[in-house]
Every structure is written in structure tokens, then in C-alpha cells.
Design a protein around this nucleic acid. Structure first.
Lengths: 197, 197, 197, 197
DNA sequence: TGCTAATCGAGACGGTACGTCTAGTCTTTTT
DNA sequence: AAAAAGACTAGACGTACCGTCTCGATTAGCA
């Protein structure tokens, strides 16, 4: 999140200037953190990055594209591999919530979801991204399946969907501070059900 | 969604004119349906309702407040009571998805969630509303508990949270067309777990 | 400029309430003094007078009418009668400038002239008022004529017009602080001309 | 006052587009002529000029600035030089009254004076402009002084002030149709005085 | 004495304009 | 060819006032 160089950037010839791209992405992140999605405008980003608006529009056709790239620049959430499905899922959610809470990622992803509600391209981008992540999350399930922890015929994608849904909703409603016990209980319900037996 | 009377509405004294309120709410709904959240502006609502902007701002301090009231005007989703938790939950989700898909409610609620990402008051309003709905959904669980279908110590609110999360995510990602089988499978995971036993 | 009574004024039957009229005129004057013509709105007057807007519109059909009455409530400018035309005119202008400078009259009259540039009725009202005042000012000239100070065939109205013009322009350009010497010189030009003889 | 080209104006790079400036000034003049000062709003000008409001505000910080430039675009009034002060002054007033009466200049200047009564910046602009014009008018007097027509010690600026005052007042009270005889009489008073001798 | 009629404060109404902000496009100049 | 710079049209933002309207309360004068 370092500031752009003092001297104004100039064109470096007939090709994309990576300094500008960086400055824009960093400015976008900073604007989002400082002013929130409400204050996130291309104008504001251009102002902060000392870039021209057309430079932004040339490389990112929409706010969504910019948001998506900012999000993807953020560090990945670690996916634990403890050998037990419970702990993997709880650990994953803990990491994810922490990541969303303590870095700019939460703001960025929230904004991306919000943007997707009014911008078709954002919706598509989000759908694509989510699909990728779901398969990613699905790995935890698949590993458990390989270990024989999962009943036959379980749809890993559907389980991943449920877990992701829970995470999304807590992100969107500012409830990223759930304690581990609650996460563990939730995972328990999912693994062992809630029915009396 | 009937059009307002031809004659211009006037003041009816030093108190709110319900005709104007109705016209504004209907216009808000119509704008949202026709132009989506992207085209949902106070100006557009005022234009369509043949109302002055100050009349809108007088009674609804923010877009969020207007959205919330539009959503609450929508008919309630029926909460089934079949005597079996599976069927209740599947039926509830089916009804909810149908309601969101086939009426304006889906657009409205999506917009409300999006708005809550940039507007503090919308976030509060949404939190309040969601709390109310969650306890509502929790009733299904509580009824099941009363029938002895639920294991001891299950947190009904947490289960309701999971179900609502699933619904929200499908709303936000334009996936309200899940077939009953998928819903049933999902509910099955929740009730009986996914672990091998 | 005493404040209205604490208790709210009510109707006193099917006739004009002089208390309200007074309160409105005083409020109009106060608003004009404190906020200038730019801040002079019927709303502001109604607010300050604790009066309903229709009460104002009922009795004064336009801002101009209100301004005119406020101006006419102001104390008259003394027209001196020293027996010498020079001193009468200089004294009159001194009194007028002082009156405009030190009371609210200046603001009010300026506003009236400004209003007359966009409001036909204000223009008419102003024309009528100015005619009355001109004949008034003309008296100074006529008295001088009676004393034989004036050459034969002089058009008193035209002279009054010139004097009033000078006063207006100084009012409109915030130059009401001319010293007596300048006024005396100006009057001297008018009385004895500027040609070399 | 030709209409703007059919095709929408675009930016011509990072500098002011003179086509837009022209269109705005012409529109301002047209609005003033057609709707008067009462109907003269930035919105109306922008609408008529097919310009964005920010484009207007970017170059003219206030209505006053716009009015002033519109006025200055108007053709200059010819200042006659007949060799006789009487004729010069009468001719100048005749030209000025004609100019104000028959072109849009009258409306514009009236509006400017009105605006100056509520807008500080307009007052300043007007003061600056008037100073320039007064020295301009003073030239007539100075020429006469050079010819020896004027008595010693006469303050040319003060005379110019008187003449301008007369013109202003007639503009502001819709009395621009004075016949030449009246003007000549007025100038006569100023040159030769009104006292009996 | 009870009724009528006009007045009062109050404030909502549909509108228009304000001055600012952003969107997304455009062109010029510089590298 | 791509960069910055910033102007361009367009239109939404939330607020202030406009002039009109309807209300409920008030009170004088007429019946």
C-alpha cells in the first residue's frame, strides 16, 4: 500500500506502464479502505493514483474488473490440512474471517458482491471467481472423502456452497467476529446433522 | 401496481398524503423491476411517481429506507407446516425462491443488501429486518424440536442462519432456479450430516 | 422592532390580525438586514414571524409588495428648508444617504429595485412610488423657483430625476459614504453648470 | 445568435472548447431575452446550450460572471466626437439608450445590476466594469476640457458619474425612450446650470 | 346562542433550481 | 501506441424555496 512515486509517471512508450497499473490498484484498495464502497469511484481512484481516467478505463472496463483484480492481489487464505474434516473446515473459516476482517479483502469482496447486483459484468466475474473458489473449498471435502470421512454420494460442491454461503452472509452483515465455538458448532451440524437419532 | 389517478395529487393539509406515499412506493418498485438497482435513483422514482423529490426525502431519509418499505409491502412468504422438518424447510425454501424469482421482491431484497454495503443506515435496517426473519425461520426448527425431531442442544438460530445464508447467496448470484431435489439434498445434509457412519 | 409575543398568534375572527401583519413586516425587515436580499425569501420571513406562508401570500401577493410596505413603514427622510437651494439639496442628499446607510431602508430599497428587474408588479409599484417621491423632491426645486433662484423654464421634474438618479446609483453601488464636499460639488455643477463662461 | 451545430460537442482535449463557450454565452443571452432575468437560471442556460452544468460552473463561477461576459460580448456603444460637449453627451446618451433598448444589452445590464444587489462577486465585477466605463465616459469631458469648454477645477469623474446615474436609472425603470429634446435639456442643465443669473 | 365565514399557524404537496459529484468519452501533447 | 491531463455531455445527488392546498382551531358577527 506504498504511495506512488513522487514524480509524475509518464508514458513509457507504446505499452502498458506497470507502475501505473500498480498505482491504480493500490489507490483503488486505499480508497476502498478509507472511504468504503460508497466513496469508491473511478474518479476517486484516478485522483489518488494520479492517473487519468481513460488509463483506468483502458485496462479495467468496469469498476467490477478493478475490484476483482484488487481482490485477487490480496494474499490467499490458507487452507489448512489437519487430516480431520472438522478442523479443516473450522480452520478455513477462521482464516477466512480473519483475512476479511483484518485486511482490505473484506471491503473489497463486499464491494464486489454489491457491484454484482447492479452490474452484469461484475455478476459474471463474480460467478467465475466463485466457481473457482468453490472447487478450491471443495478440495477440503474431497480430501476428507479420500480419507473415507464422507458418506457415499455426497455432493462436495453443494457442501462447499453451504459453507461459502455462511461466510458470505457473515461478511455482508458485518458479522465476521464469530468465535471458534460457534463455527465449530455450525460445522458439527453440517457433518453430523441436527436430527435426533 | 395500478397507475395513479390522472389528476395531480395535492397536499391534504399538514399531514402525510397516503396517495403520494403509495404512488412513490409503487413507482419505486416499478423502477426497480424495469431498470434494476443500477437505474434505481430517487430522481427516477420521483419522475415516475409524479412526486417532488423533497416529498420522498421527507418520508424516506435514504434509498435504503425506501427499499425496505417496498420490500415489506411485498406479500409474505408462506411458511409451511407439514409436520416433518425436511418438508417444512424444503417447502419454505421453494416458496422463498419462487417469491423472489417471480415477484419484484427478489430485485428489491438484492438491492437492499447491495445498498447495505455502502450505506450504514441500510445495514442497520437490514440487520433489524434479518433478525426478525431469522426468528421467524427459527420457528420451523422450534416446531421440529417440539415434535422431538431435533437432537438436544441444537441452536435453532444457528440453523436458521445457515438456511438463510444459503438463500441469500443464491439470490445474490442469480441462482434461484434450483430444483427441489437439490434443495432436498441440502436440507438432508443439514439434518443428517455428511459424515460416514 | 420588538419581538412578537411569546404566545402563538391565533385568528381573531374573520378579519386580518394586525399583530400578524406587524410581525411579518418586522420579520421581513429583520431578514433583509441580517441576510440581505439574497437570503430574503418568503419562507424565511414566515419562519421568523412564526406565520404561515399563506398568511403572507394572502396580504402581499409578491415579494415586491412586501418589500414596498416594509420600505414605506420606515421613517421619512427629512426634507430641509434652509431658504437656499444649494443647502436644501445637499442637506436632502445627506439625510437620504444617512437614512439609507444607517437604517434598514437602504437594504430594503435596493432589494426593491432589484426585485423590479425581474418582477413586473414590483416595477409598477416602484414606478408609482418613485413618481410620488420625485414630486416630493421637486418641492425643493419649486420652493427655490418661488424664491426666484431658478431660471425660467426649468423642468423641476427633470432636475429631481437627476438628483434621484445620483442617489440611486450610489445606493446600488454601495457608495453611500460620499462626504459633504462631494455632494456640494455635484449640486454646484447642477446649479451653476460646468461650462467655462 | 446562430444555433449550435447539430452534432453534440465533445471535448477537444484538455483545454477549453471555444464552441462550448460560445454556445453557452449565446444561450445565456437568448434565455435572458426570452425569459428575462426571472427566468435566467444556470439550468436553463445549460439546457439551451446543450451543455453540462459543470461546464458552465467551470468557466463562470457565478451568474454574475456569465452575465458580465455576455454584456461585454455586446457591441460597444459609439462615443461621438463632434467637437461640442453638448452634442457629444447627448449623442452618447442617445446611442446608449438605443443600444440598451434595441439589443439584448439592456436586459443583460439590468440583470447584472440586479444580481449585484444579492451577490457580492457581482457587485465587485460591476464596480470594476463601471470604473472602466466611467473613465471611458470621462473622456468626453476631458476632450471638452482640452478644448477649453470646461471651467477650471471641474471633476470629470463626478460629471461622468452624474451622466451614468441618469442612464442607469432610466434603464432600471424602463424609461429608455426619452426623446432627444429631454436629453438635450438635461445636458443643458448640467453644462449651464439651472440657477437664475 | 348557535352558525357561518374568514383568518390563523402549520406543514405537506408538485416543482424548479441550486452547486457538486461521478460516469464514461474524447482529444491533445508527451514519451 | 500508450500515458497524463483534463474538458466534454449527461444526469443524480440532497437541499432550499416557490406558490398552492388542506387541515383543525379560533373568533367575530349574523341569524
Amino acid at each position: 500500500m506504498a504511495e506512488a512515486a513522487e514524480t509524475a509517471r509518464k508514458s513509457i512508450g507504446a505499452r502498458r506502464n506497470p507502475q501505473s497499473a500498480d498505482a491504480i490498484l493500490e489507490a483503488a484498495e486505499a480508497v476502498l479502505v478509507e472511504a468504503g464502497y460508497a466513496g469508491f469511484s473511478i474518479e476517486a481512484v484516478a485522483r489518488r493514483a494520479r492517473a487519468g481516467k481513460p488509463t483506468i478505463y483502458r485496462w479495467w472496463p468496469s469498476k467490477a474488473a478493478l475490484l476483482l483484480e484488487v481482490y485477487q492481489r490480496g494474499k490467499r487464505v490458507e487452507v489448512p490440512d489437519t487430516g480431520k474434516l472438522d478442523d479443516d473446515l473450522v480452520g478455513f473459516l477462521k482464516n477466512l474471517f480473519f483475512h476479511w476482517r483484518e485486511t482490505s479483502s473484506g471491503s473489497v469482496f463486499r464491494s464486489l458482491i454489491a457491484e454484482a447486483q447492479s452490474d452484469e459484468s461484475a455478476a459474471l466475474a463474480l460467478a467465475g471467481y466463485a466457481a473457482g473458489r468453490r472447487s478450491h473449498t471443495g478440495e477440503i471435502i474431497e480430501r476428507a472423502r479420500a480419507r473415507g470421512e464422507i458418506a457415499a454420494g455426497i455432493d462436495a460442491a453443494l457442501v462447499a456452497d453451504l459453507v461459502a454461503s455462511y461466510a458470505w452472509r457473515h461478511l455482508l452483515t458485518n458479522q465476521l467476529d464469530e468465535d471458534e465455538a460457534t463455527l465449530r458448532r455450525m460445522v458439527g451440524y453440517l457433518l453430523r446433522g441436527i436430527e435426533a437419532r
